[in-house]
């Protein structure tokens, strides 16, 4: 019988620790598939985050470097500058990339570092227990916005992708969603394009992925996908930004 679906080479054959319906596992796989399709596994260095995806290096089967919370793009900058023939990407959540690491993100982007960034936006801090993220929606209840995010005291959901698109050093910014099969395929294409850009020395490319966190959204996995589609996507509309 012909095998039509299997584990891709860059994923290890281990179970992940992610919750049911979590988007991380999907995006991990997309990255692994892209790396294998581009045949770059042996020259790829992933910079892994602090947060739910902290042990992503246990799931991927290529070289990885751990980064302190927020510092991913500083770490990646040095790796890529010293090893320009390698493919370097960061995998960062919303707290990492858009709160504690905002400076590193903006300055690496502004320097036009030839890097690929996969930015997971799920509007909450998962690892620490569902606290408010810079991307939390107005009215969204989290552990640290129990009455719902109030723009008067907590500000607005930070659309960092739109912000980064303003910078001259940035080559491409795209937002995609994992709310459907179609969305997942689009996400894969966006990630693939972002890796290809680096291979062609085009510069800083970022893909923001709208990703589900059923546990802290207190929704079922299916409801979570609907929430991305009907609510989150209104604030963070998928599509090519730059």
């Amino acid at each position: 019988m012909k095998k039509i679906f299997g584990r891709t080479r860059s994923l290890r054959g281990v179970d992940t620790h992610y919750c049911q319906g979590c988007g991380h596992g999907v995006v991990h796989r997309l990255i692994a598939e892209v790396i294998d399709e581009l045949n770059i596994r042996e020259i790829t260095i992933g910079v892994t985050p602090v947060g739910c995806a902290v042990v992503a290096y246990d799931y991927w089967d290529f070289d990885c470097v751990e980064s302190a919370h927020g510092r991913g793009l500083a770490v990646a900058t040095a790796i890529k500058r010293l090893q320009p023939d390698k493919i370097v990407f960061t995998y960062q959540g919303d707290g990492d990339l858009a709160a504690i690491g905002t400076a590193e993100t903006i300055h690496a982007a502004n320097r036009g570092e030839n890097l690929t960034v996969v930015f997971i936006n799920n509007t909450v801090y998962g690892m620490t227990g569902g606290q408010m993220a810079p991307t939390t929606l107005i009215g969204q209840k989290t552990a640290t916005s129990p009455l719902g995010r109030n723009e008067k005291t907590e500000g607005y959901p930070l659309r960092i992708s739109e912000l980064l698109a303003q910078l001259q050093g940035v080559y491409s910014v795209e937002r995609s969603s994992t709310d459907s099969v179609q969305g997942i395929l689009k996400t894969k294409n966006a990630i693939k394009a972002a890796f290809k850009n680096q291979m062609e020395n085009k510069g800083f490319s970022l893909v923001e992925v709208l990703s589900a966190c059923p546990t802290y959204w207190v929704l079922s996995p299916v409801e979570s996908l609907d929430w991305i589609k009907n609510t989150m996507s209104k604030v963070f509309p998928p599509g090519r930004i730059k």
Partner: peptide, 26 residues
């Protein structure tokens, strides 16, 4: 070698982390 004026000391030492992880004296 590579010289980078970083955006902060946080970033500078993180870059050194990345450089050293690359096997380079930093």
């Amino acid at each position: 070698g590579i010289f980078i004026q970083s955006e902060s000391e946080l970033s500078a030492i993180s870059m050194v982390f990345g450089a050293s992880a690359s096997g380079v004296r930093a």
